[in-house]
Simulated scan of single mutants.
Amino acid sequence: MNKPKPEILVIHESVWHSFVRDATTFLMAVSIIGVGVLLASTAMQWVGAIVFFLAVAGTAAAHKNRMTIEEARKRIDELEATL
């Protein structure tokens, strides 16, 4: 018997929560690159850039799964029907 893949549905996320999440991601990358600049470490600057690009890619991938409340209700109904 195949076990269904767990799904996470975010029902509410305000603009403020989205802004804070994006700002912390940006600040994390800038801080890694900044420490690399202060230490004159090219490797750390590259790591900061790579982390930033991965974070941007992850954010973009997460946005494709966004749903409206109606779409989320429909998806929940579909999941309950399979149980």
Rank of each mutant, 00 (worst) to 15 (best):
E71H: 01
T59L: 14
F26I: 14
P6C: 02
A40M: 12
V15T: 06
A49K: 06
D22L: 13
V30G: 05
A23Q: 13
M1A: 10
S31W: 06
D77P: 03
V35Y: 12
G58S: 11
M1T: 11
A23D: 05
V30M: 10
T68Q: 06
M44S: 14
E80T: 04
S14M: 01
T68E: 03
A49E: 02
R21Q: 10
S18K: 05
P6Q: 01
V37D: 03
K64L: 11
A61M: 14
A57E: 08
V20H: 09
M44K: 04
R21H: 15
R66F: 11
V15K: 13
D22E: 13
N2L: 11
V20C: 08
A49Q: 01
L39F: 15
K64E: 13
L54W: 14
R73F: 09
I50Q: 06
I11M: 12
K64G: 10
L83I: 12
A57S: 11
I50M: 14
W46L: 15
V30A: 14
S14P: 01
D77N: 12
K74S: 10
M28K: 09
I76W: 02
P6H: 05
S31I: 11
V35R: 01
K74W: 01
L9R: 01
A29R: 02
F53V: 15
D77S: 11
F26H: 03
S14V: 00
